[in-house]
Structure formats: structure tokens, C-alpha cells
Design a binder for these strands. Structure first.
Length: 827
RNA sequence: GCGGGCGUGGCGGAAUGGCAGACGCGCUGGAUUUAGGAUCCAGUGGGGUAACUCCCGUGGAGGUUCAAGUCCUCUCGCCCGCACCA
């Protein structure tokens, strides 16, 4: 062993060695219990950032720990390789093809991951842009298509003018594009959708199976799905046969309706104003509202504006005429695009009614007080009994919801209805660098899916790409023109590509059988490995990626392709890496590059710091001095062992169990540390406290090292140092491997068994307990361990100082907690 | 507005209802060194004291308990997610 810790040499040496012997290769099956540890695969931007380092360091500790504990661990890595940046780079640099750009970046990032020393089985690597992969992305699309879960429709879609493509609902953030922040516009386009709404209820219900997910993520998904129960109610339009259907969660307030509002885009609007004098005015209003951006349209700040259509509808319960208007705040996409106005019992309706002078009619009375509509300052939205509601008067409103719905159902004028906020998933993208949607349009046969045997539909590689608003592929006749698989006539290919979230919604199945050519995966292997035992990634994927993956898994399960109901059993969402209190970003100029840190201190230091500085779920504040501290610690470990190498090589393996004095104490601390580190890693993922426990063990070892050799049991020393190395090895794999070899071992430290603690070794003979008088610490006593409460009391009461302090006072009560404390309450 | 999270030394952070501040950083003093760096040892929440002993202290106010950072009620501040969803 060299005197100095030369991390550059050591890390390179072992990384090469591990690659050479393929140390982390995982057989497909084993008798050992499986464990699938997965980190979210990255988009190959070409550069690893600290967020990646954190994500993959956490995963690596888990994978190495589980491996050492005897599990058969799958720990793979790949690339989410389709997407806009490649195309944008190609546009910018002109000469470079998105494929080349992507593959260059993958090579760079793979190298950076190897430099970090992460234990991936690289034999299972793939990129989603590989034809061997997107072949099966397309195949899966076809399975959804055949099942009626993929469909095309004209739709007002979110259009990002900068990216020149449409976005899924989930990709619109505060009315802007999730990627480039540009204000999203609405456009009418024919687009492909997946019917995720068919699975809304299952996605909601099966959250019961996700006990290992953070509450926060589940809540976010719940809100996103947004299930609500209510009723649809049909209103006849006065003087016509047209029906206006509203959705409401409050059918108990139907007797309180005083107006009715449609979304401006509602299909009935044009019909209702036909021949009316208001036609021009209404159209102008509709156009004005339509021109608003999503942000302005949905902002709660914007004033509610309504415009009467000059038509009435008939309340099916009262027969009353109710004025119908359109207003900017009603959304066509939710419910039926039509809202009933009940000013007395809905705050928004109340405010709107004040402005437009609609009557307020109380139909729910709270217990105890009497509401008078003319005195109301706000809507009454709480519980109460029905009034002014005909035969339903006197019913508690909760009950009235059911009864009124049932009554309407009987009359054929309404029905119970569940509505979701969740919309179908829009997957068409007007871009080049994605998986082509495997569909052919034929004048004779219509929409024809590409036969499975013709897959993959390959992306043409020799073409230029410009975002024109049309798919770039549309400009390539060689791609577009084809023959219809059904009639053999002329066919034209779909030129949109798939949302990249489609590619990332099934990649974790592919790792089990990356070379599979007969299907997307080998079911035996998937059934063996899935579900993923531990998934680790950023919380920013709480909705999009995680919800889509759950949806796919349920579809795959229905198709008999997989046996699991959910893809990820346990989810860990790691916090952000901050510098100076804010997220690292180029614009803030506070980015610390992993490459620099590795060059300066080595991967082991980088990993150790990032795991030590904060618990994984919390945000982590970067500290150069903290990094320095971890570097010092590894140097300390090195210098601890270096002079002892020869002693250790000669030392017996197992210490005796009948040790005394300092040797016994050393062994006790060793085993206590094994216990603590094992528990911190396995039960709580508290890597920071695990590392601090190892640091304490090293501090103790420094003292033990100073004990004269004649008094020091070499077996105890050996056990302590070897345990310390084993415990540290998941965190700092290189230095521990080097030292492990230096003290005479031939096999890799990473293939060793995780140390077991000996409960007998942890037991202490004597314990310092705290003596409290009236709950204040007044004395500490060294007493034999394991005394009963009564024995402890006896010892404490007999103590000279205690009797002095309690002299002349009356002992009211004595509480004794074994091996901890005695509290004497006196008066 | 709704939902979730977080408030502990100079800093990052520890504490199954049982000695608040483990571990690390920083700082102070000492050893070593020509010097610096590195290393090693000791100290380091605030206040008071000659000293032991003492008092105060986990955003704030109450409460439960022999005992509260931890449990309960109210409140303030910050962060995140959703937000006219009928």
C-alpha cells in the first residue's frame, strides 16, 4: 500500500478491472431472492450533472448493499434517447444528424457513469432510439390500437410555437411549455390519443398497492386524476327539441338554479343563436375568448364575463324558465361544458350573480339559523336541510343528492355520473426524432395499422429536418409513400412521431431481456424480475412518467404481457441539489460540475459527500468545504490502515468472544456500528447517519491504534477494520476495494457478505444512567446493565448526593426506565 | 383557496416521549513545522460564576405528561404541487 491515497490511480485501476472481469453482470435467473433496483434513466444531454450523481449514487448504495445481503440484484442503465434537444442541436450545428449527436452524448455519459464507479450491468444497456427498441414501442402502440385504446381525433390541442409541436396536457405548466416556457396556444389538429381515462378508476384504486410510495406523489396523482361524483341533468331548451346537459356535484341544489352557463365553444351555441339578433355579438365574444391564451383563460384573477344568449331552458324539477348565457370561465373540456348557476350555494355563482343581477334562492338551510337571500354576503356551501325544493323539503342535503339523482334517473332526465379531471393522453408529436407511429392511410381502406411483421417503421436517416409545424417526415416522399397492407394500393404513412414518454413508460421491462427479438420482452424474465423493488428519481416525474408507466403496466397486464399490477413497489424521490439555496442552473451561474469534483477529489469523495450531506429525500446544499471534509475522511481511512497492513495480514480472522477491557470495548463498538449502518440503510435510507456511524468507528479505531501492541488483540483490530471497509464499500467502492486487496484478500470486496452483528457483543456490562429530581438532571450513575426498575431505584435512593438533594422533602413518585434514567418527584 | 412538506448552534444536519445539538464543516487554543499546507490533540448553543454547582434554549402561544424538538390545539414564516374542475 502506498503511503499516499492516490485516488486517480486507484479509481482507474479498479474501474478497468471491474469492466474486464464483468463484475456486475447479472444472470437472468437465480435461486437467490431477486431485487430490482432502478434509477430513472437519463436523457443523453452529454453531460452528467449533480442531480444525476445524487440519483445514481443513492441507487448504487442500495444495489451494492442488497447484493452483499445475498439478494440477486438487477441494476441496469440505459438512455431515454429520443427527443427535441437532438433535433435542436442538429438545426443549430447544421451538419450533425440527431442520431450521431445522441450517440456521441451517450458515449460521453456512459464514460462519466463509469468514472463514478456505479455497479451497472452494462450488458443490458440500450437506447430508446435504437430500432431494436422502438420496434417494440411501435408494437406496443399497435397492441393498444387493437384494443381500442389508441384513437385519432380532431381536437383543440396545446401547441408550443417555439418547439413547433403539440404537447400533452401534462406537459403544459402554468400555460407555458414545460420545456421552453413559451406560451402555449390552442390549435385544432387531428391527433393520436391513448385512452388513459378508461383506466382512471384503476389508477386511483390501485394506489392502495403503493404503500412504498411517498404520500406526496400519491396525492399529486390523485389530484391529477381528479375524480368527482355527481349527476348529469338534462334541460330542455324552450321552444326547441334541443337538450342541454349539465354536470354537477350538487344535484341537491337544482331547485336553486337561477341561470345556466355554457362554454363559449359549446357546440349548441351556434344553433341557439341561429337567426337571432344577438348572433354577431355572441360570435364576437366567442372569438375574443378563444383568442386568449391558456393562462389568461384559466387564471382565477381574470374577471368573469358572461353574455346572455336570449334563450331559456326549462328546469326539469320546477318547470321554471332559466336564462342561458355563455361565459369565459366555463371550460368545454370538463364535464359537459355547461354549468348550472346556484348563487345561494356556490361562491363563484354568488359573485357572478351579484354582477349580473341573478336572483339568489336559498334551498339549503343550516341547522340553527335561517338564511335570507337578501342578507347573504357569501354563498352557503355547508351541510343543511332542503327548503324551497318541493317534495324534497326537509331532507338532509347529503341524502337529497342521492334522492334527486334517482328521481331524475327515473324520469329519464338525469343520471349518476363520475367525472375525471384526467384527459386522454395526446401522443402525436410533429417532430422527426421520435418513434414513427405505425399507421398507414389508404384512400380505399382508411386507417390501416402497419402489420407487426413489417415493424419497425424505420426513421429515414438521410434527411434534413426543420420544424415547420408539419411533421418533418411529411416532407420525405420516400418515407410517406408506401403500399396499403390491406389492398396493396397506394398508402401514405402517418408522419407524426410518438411522445417520448411513450418510450420511457416501458423501458424497465426491456432491461430484463434487452436482446429479445420475438417480442418486447421475455415474459418469464419479466415475471421473475418485476415489479421493480426500488425506483429512484426526481419528484418532477410524479405525474407524467409515473402515471403513464402505471397506465401501461395495467394495459400490459390486461393484454397478458405481464403478471404484475403495478410497476414500482417502492419509490424514493430524491431532493434537488442546491447551491447558495437555489437549484443549480446555468442562468444562475452556480453549477458545480461532477467532472471537476471527480478530477479533484475522486468519485469516492463525490459520492460520499452527496450521501452524507443530507437525507436523500431532502434538498441538498452543495458545500465545497463539506466535500473537503469527506476527502479528509477517506484520507484518514487510508492512513489508519496503511501502517497496519502487515499486522492485519497476520492477524487471526475471528476474535475470541470472551474478551475483556479495551478489546472488548472495541469489538462492542464494531458490532454496534454494523447494526446501526445496516438499519440506517435498509429501513430508512438514511445514508447520512450511516456514514456518520462509520466515521465514529474510524475515530474509535484511531484511539485503538494507539493502544500498546501487547494489549491490543490483533483479531479484534482485524475484525474492526474489515467491518469498517465492508460497511463503507457501497458508498466508496474504489478505496475500499484497494485496501481490501492490500490487506491480503483475493476476491472483490463487492462480492463479500454484508457483516452480521453479534447481539452478545453489543451488550454492555455497565451503563451510565441519568438521575433526575423533578425532571431535572441532577446526577449520573454508573450501574450494572439490565437492572430491574426496582433495583435501579434502590441504587439511586441509596446514593449520597441524591439523598442530600432530597433531604427534608417528600418523595411523591419515582419513575425508573431500565438502563436509561430514574426520575424522583419530590415536594 | 385546496393539498403536501419544512422551521433545531455560525453552516449542513443528529435525536424508538427519557442527558437536545451525534457526525461533518467552520472557528479558537495547543503540538509538529524555517514558514505555509497537511496532520494530531483539546475546546466550541447562549448567559452567569473564582469554582463546583446554576439559569435559559429546538419559529411563536397554550395544553397533555414525572418527562415534549418529538403528542394535541391555535398561530407565524418559508418551500413545493394543484387551482374558475362546476
Amino acid at each position: 500500500m502506498k503511503a499516499k491515497y492516490d485516488f486517480t490511480e486507484i479509481e482507474k485501476k479498479w474501474q478497468d478491472h471491474w469492466a474486464e472481469v464483468d463484475l456486475y453482470a447479472v444472470p437472468d435467473f437465480s435461486d437467490r431472492q431477486k431485487y430490482y433496483c432502478l434509477e430513472m434513466f437519463p436523457y443523453p444531454s452529454g453531460k452528467l450533472h449533480m442531480g444525476h450523481v445524487r440519483n445514481y449514487s443513492i441507487g448504487d448504495v442500495v444495489a451494492r448493499f442488497k447484493t452483499m445481503q445475498g439478494r440477486h440484484v438487477l441494476h441496469p442503465m440505459g438512455w431515454d434517447a429520443f427527443g427535441l434537444p437532438a433535433e435542436n442541436a442538429a438545426l443549430k450545428h447544421g451538419a450533425i444528424h440527431p442520431a450521431d449527436w445522441t450517440h456521441d452524448n451517450i458515449d460521453k455519459m456512459r464514460q462519466q457513469l463509469e468514472q463514478l464507479g456505479i455497479s451497472y450491468d452494462w450488458n443490458r444497456e440500450f437506447a430508446t432510439c435504437d430500432p431494436e427498441y422502438y420496434h417494440w414501442t411501435q408494437w406496443l402502440f399497435l397492441q393498444l390500437y387493437h384494443r381500442g385504446l389508441a384513437y385519432k381525433k380532431m381536437s383543440a390541442v396545446n401547441w408550443c410555437p417555439d418547439c413547433a409541436t403539440v404537447l400533452a396536457n401534462e406537459q403544459v405548466v402554468n400555460g407555458g411549455c414545460e420545456r421552453c416556457k413559451a406560451t402555449v396556444e390552442k390549435r385544432e389538429l387531428a391527433q393520436w390519443f391513448f385512452k388513459i381515462t378508461d383506466y382512471a378508476d384503476r389508477l386511483l384504486k390501485d394506489m392502495d398497492l403503493l404503500a412504498g410510495w411517498p404520500e406526496k406523489v400519491k396525492t399529486m396523482q390523485e389530484n391529477w386524476i381528479g375524480r368527482s361524483e355527481g349527476a348529469e341533468i338534462d334541460f330542455k331548451i324552450e321552444g326547441t327539441e334541443d337538450i342541454l346537459t349539465v354536470y354537477t356535484t350538487r344535484p341537491d341544489t337544482v331547485f336553486g338554479i337561477t341561470y345556466m352557463v355554457l362554454a363559449p365553444e359549446h357546440p349548441l351555441v351556434e344553433k341557439l343563436i341561429a337567426g337571432s339578433a344577438k348572433k354577431a355579438e355572441v360570435r364576437a365574444f366567442v372569438n375574443q375568448v378563444k383568442s386568449l391564451s391558456e393562462i389568461d383563460r384559466t387564471s382565477t384573477e381574470v374577471e368573469k364575463i358572461g353574455l346572455p344568449l336570449g334563450v331559456n331552458c326549462i328546469n326539469p324539477l320546477t318547470g321554471e324558465k332559466i336564462p342561458v348565457l355563455i361565459a369565459n370561465y366555463v371550460l368545454l373540456e370538463y364535464g359537459t361544458g355547461c354549468v348550472m348557476g346556484v348563487p345561494a350555494h356556490d361562491q363563484r355563482d354568488f359573485e357572478f350573480a351579484q354582477k349580473y343581477n341573478f336572483p339568489v334562492r336559498v334551498v339549503i338551510q343550516p341547522a340553527g339559523a335561517e338564511l335570507k337571500s337578501q342578507d347573504m354576503q357569501a354563498a352557503y356551501e355547508e351541510e343543511g336541510l332542503l327548503v324551497n325544493s318541493g317534495k324534497f323539503n326537509g331532507l338532509p342535503n347529503e341524502k337529497a343528492i342521492k334522492e334527486i339523482t334517482a328521481y331524475l334517473e327515473e324520469k329519464g332526465q338525469g343520471r349518476f355520473k363520475v367525472t375525471y379531471r384526467l384527459r386522454d393522453w395526446l401522443i402525436s408529436r410533429q417532430r422527426y426524432w421520435g418513434a414513427p407511429i405505425p399507421i398507414i392511410y389508404c384512400d380505399v381502406c382508411g386507417v390501416v395499422p402497419v402489420p407487426e411483421t413489417d415493424l419497425p417503421v424505420l426513421l429515414p436517416m438521410n434527411m434534413a429536418y426543420k420544424p415547420t409545424g408539419q411533421s418533418p417526415l411529411a416532407g420525405y416522399p420516400d418515407f410517406v409513400n408506401t403500399t396499403c397492407p390491406q389492398c396493396g394500393g397506394l398508402g401514405k404513412r402517418e408522419t407524426d412521431t410518438m411522445d417520448t414518454f411513450m418510450c420511457s413508460s416501458w423501458y424497465y421491462y426491456r432491461y430484463t431481456s434487452p436482446g429479445e427479438t420475438e417480442g418486447p420482452w421475455d415474459k418469464n424474465k419479466v415475471d421473475y424480475w418485476l415489479p421493480v423493488d426500488q425506483y429512484i428519481g426526481g419528484v418532477e416525474h410524479a405525474i407524467l412518467h409515473l402515471l403513464y408507466s402505471r397506465f401501461f403496466t395495467k394495459v400490459f397486464n390486461d393484454l397478458g404481457l405481464v403478471s404484475n399490477q403495478e410497476p414500482f413497489t417502492n419509490l424514493l424521490t430524491q431532493g434537488m441539489v442546491l447551491k447558495d439555496g437555489v437549484k443549480m442552473s446555468k442562468s444562475k451561474g452556480n453549477v458545480v460540475s461532477p467532472e471537476e469534483i471527480i478530477a479533484r477529489y475522486g468519485a469516492d469523495t463525490a459520492r460520499l459527500f452527496i450521501l452524507f450531506a443530507a437525507p436523500p429525500e431532502r434538498d441538498l446544499e452543495w458545500s465545497d468545504q463539506g466535500v473537503e471534509g469527506c476527502f479528509r475522511f477517506l484520507n484518514r481511512v487510508w492512513r489508519l490502515v496503511e501502517p497496519l497492513v502487515e499486522v492485519l495480514k497476520k492477524a487471526p480472522h475471528r476474535p475470541a468472544t470472551n474478551l475483556v477491557g479495551i478489546n472488548r470495548e472495541m469489538r462492542r463498538i464494531t458490532h454496534k456500528t454494523i447494526k446501526k449502518v445496516s438499519e440506517d440503510i435498509s429501513t430508512r435510507f438514511n445514508f447520512n447517519t450511516a456514514v456518520s456511524a462509520i466515521m465514529e468507528l474510524v475515530n474509535t479505531l484511531y484511539q485503538f491504534k494507539e493502544v500498546p501492541e501487547s494489549d491490543r488483540d490483533p483479531a479484534v483490530l482485524r475484525e474492526a477494520i474489515e467491518s469498517m471497509l465492508l460497511l463503507l464499500s457501497p458508498f466508496a467502492p474504489h478505496i475500499t476495494e484497494e485496501i481490501w486487496a492490500a490487506i491480503g484478500h483475493t476476491g472483490s470486496i463487492h462480492l463479500q457478505d454484508w457483516p452480521q452483528y453479534d447481539p452478545a457483543a453489543i451488550v454492555e456490562d455497565e451503563i451510565t444512567i441519568v438521575v433526575q429530581i423533578n425532571s431535572k438532571v441532577r446526577e449520573r450513575l454508573l450501574i450494572p446493565a439490565g437492572l430491574s426498575a426496582a433495583e435501579m431505584q434502590e441504587k439511586v435512593i441509596g446514593n449520597a448526593k441524591v439523598s442530600r438533594l432530597t433531604e427534608g422533602k417528600k418523595i411523591v413518585k419515582v419513575i425508573a426506565v431500565p438502563d436509561k434514567l430514574v426520575n424522583i418527584v419530590v415536594k
